[in-house]
Computed example of a mutant assay.
Amino acid sequence: MEITLGNWKAIAHDERAAPGFTLMEATYLLHAAAGMTRKEIAKATGRSPATVRHGLDRAYHKVGAYRVTAAVAEAIRRGWIAPLVLALIVSSLNQDSDELMRVRQPVTRRQPVTATSRVARRDLGSVYA
């Protein structure tokens, strides 16, 4: 079964023993990939934060990761989840792609050095004079 959430899609399996994620594990990981915290995921899915934590822990264990970023990266590498590439397809259809890839050069501003701009940090002589 394929599910989509925001800019992400995942393949979920009905059986817990099947390779890949269950429906809820995939849902939790897609929310996490979108940048949501465990509490936000719990609120969005109508579950408790502890249930979300256990679901994410099971997903981490399946991919052999300890953190959400590593789990998302490994799931993408295995092909279990993927970002939607609609934006890339649209940009490739644009004929003026060279214009979009242009990078602005940084502006550097230099102030002229004058005798008055070179003041010592601690000019104690003028304070106590």
Rank of each mutant, 00 (worst) to 15 (best):
M1G: 09
E2M: 13
G6H: 06
G6Q: 08
N7A: 13
N7H: 08
N7P: 05
N7T: 06
K9G: 06
A10K: 04
A10L: 02
I11V: 04
I11K: 01
I11A: 04
A18V: 10
A18R: 12
A18Y: 05
P19F: 04
G20Q: 12
G20Y: 12
M24S: 13
M24I: 13
E25P: 11
A26Q: 12
A26T: 08
Y28M: 15
Y28P: 00
L29R: 12
L30R: 05
H31G: 13
H31D: 13
H31C: 15
A32F: 11
A33L: 08
A33P: 06
G35N: 02
G35S: 03
R38A: 07
R38V: 05
E40R: 09
I41K: 07
A42Q: 02
A42M: 03
A42C: 01
A42G: 02
K43D: 12
A44Y: 06
A44R: 05
T45C: 10
T45L: 04
G46P: 10
G46A: 11
R47K: 11
R47A: 09
T51P: 01
T51G: 12
R53P: 00
R53E: 15
H54A: 10
H54F: 10
D57P: 00
D57N: 13
D57C: 02
A59N: 03
A59E: 02
H61D: 10
K62I: 02
G64N: 03
G64V: 01
A65W: 02
Y66S: 04
R67W: 06
R67A: 13
V68Y: 03
T69F: 08
A71R: 01
A71D: 02
V72S: 05
V72E: 01
V72Y: 00
V72N: 02
V72C: 01
A73Q: 03
A73C: 03
A75F: 09
A75N: 04
I76Y: 00
I76T: 12
R78A: 12
G79Y: 00
W80Y: 03
W80G: 01
I81E: 06
A82R: 14
A82Q: 15
P83D: 05
V85W: 06
L86A: 10
L88V: 08
L88K: 10
I89M: 13
I89G: 07
V90E: 15
V90K: 08
V90I: 07
S91R: 15
S92H: 13
L93S: 10
L93M: 12
N94I: 09
Q95L: 13
S97L: 13
S97H: 14
S97V: 15
L100R: 00
M101I: 07
M101L: 15
R102P: 00
R102A: 10
Q105L: 07
V107Y: 05
V107E: 09
V107A: 03
T108G: 02
T108C: 01
T108Q: 13
R109V: 15
Q111P: 00
Q111T: 11
P112A: 14
V113L: 10
V113W: 00
V113D: 02
T114D: 13
A115H: 10
T116Y: 03
S117G: 11
S117F: 12
V119M: 07
A120C: 11
R121Q: 05
R122W: 14
D123Y: 03
L124P: 03
L124N: 10
G125I: 05
G125V: 02
S126D: 09
S126R: 14
V127R: 01
V127C: 00
V127M: 04
Y128C: 05
